[in-house]
Design a protein around this nucleic acid. Sequence first.
DNA 1: TAGATAGTTCAAACATTTTTGAAGTATATC
DNA 2: GATATACTTCAAAAATGTTTGAACTATCTA
Lengths: 134, 134
Amino acid sequence: MFELSNGNIFDVNHPPVPMERLIAQLKALANPKRLQMIHLLMEGVHCNCELGDALEMAPNLISHHMSILRDLGLVEMERDAVDARWVYFSINEAALTRLNQDFSAFFAPERIKPRRPTCGPQGAVVPMSEIAVT
Amino acid sequence: MFELSNGNIFDVNHPPVPMERLIAQLKALANPKRLQMIHLLMEGVHCNCELGDALEMAPNLISHHMSILRDLGLVEMERDAVDARWVYFSINEAALTRLNQDFSAFFAPERIKPRRPTCGPQGAVVPMSEIAVT
DNA sequence: TAGATAGTTCAAACATTTTTGAAGTATATC
DNA sequence: GATATACTTCAAAAATGTTTGAACTATCTA
C-alpha cells in the first residue's frame, strides 16, 4: 500500500477505481455522437427532437444513445408537466463529478512508478530514437 | 464566449478541446485489456512477455494493443541495449498529463449551464420519479 | 373517439473492433 | 551458418457496436 502525493491510497495489483465501472463509463463516452450529445446537454436541457435536429439523427437513435448514457447515470430524463409527450434530457452533475474523480484517480500521472524491467537481460535501456533507422 | 470559474474560455457551439483528439483517446482507452495494460505500465516498465504473462494474452495481441496506445502517444517503446530483441513499454507522462487536461476540460461540471428547454410547450418540468408507474 | 404527435422498442443490416493463427523480421546463441 | 528467441505484421474469423426501418406506446387535440 502506498499513499500518493494527492492523498489517495494505492495498492499494487489493484487499480484505484473499480475497473468495471471505469470501463462502462469509457465505453459509453467513446462515441462521437454521444460526446456531441453530452456537449449539447452541457449547454442546457434538450428534448429528443432538439438533439435530433442539431445532430441530424432520427429520434429512435437519440433514444438509443440517451438510454446508454442514462444507464450510466450521466444523463437524466424528465417529462414535460404540461404535455407529457415531451421529454427533456439533462446532465446529472453528481454523476459527472464522480466520472471526473474516477478518471483522474486511474490516470493520475503521480501513479507512474520508476522503471523496473523485471524481465529480459536487465541491460541498460536505450531510447528508440537512438537506434539507427534501417 | 464565456470565462468559467476555473479560468477556461468557453465558446458556445465549440467544445473546449478538439473532438477528434478526445474521441481518439477515449476509443483507445475504452477497452478492458488496454486499461489493464496501462495499469501495469503505471506500476513500472514491462516487456511484451511480462504483459502477456500478466494478462494471459499472446505476444501478437500485446503488440497490437501497444501499437494502438503508442499511436496515441500514451505509451513509449524502448529496446534493450544489451539484447535488442527485448522491448520495454512505458507510460509517457506528458501524454498522460495532456489526456487528463483534455478530459477534465470537456467533462468539467462547471460547464453545465442552467436548464433551458427551447422546444416543446415550455411548461413546468416534473422529475420522472414523480410520475406514477403504470 | 379518430387522428396526430413525441418518443421508445425491436430485429435485422451494416460497420467496426478484437482475437486467432500463421508467416515474417531482427537479433542473439550455438 | 543454422537454430532459437522476442517480437511484429498480416489476413481471416469472431465478437461488438451502430444504424436503419418498421412497429409500438403514451399522450394530446379536434
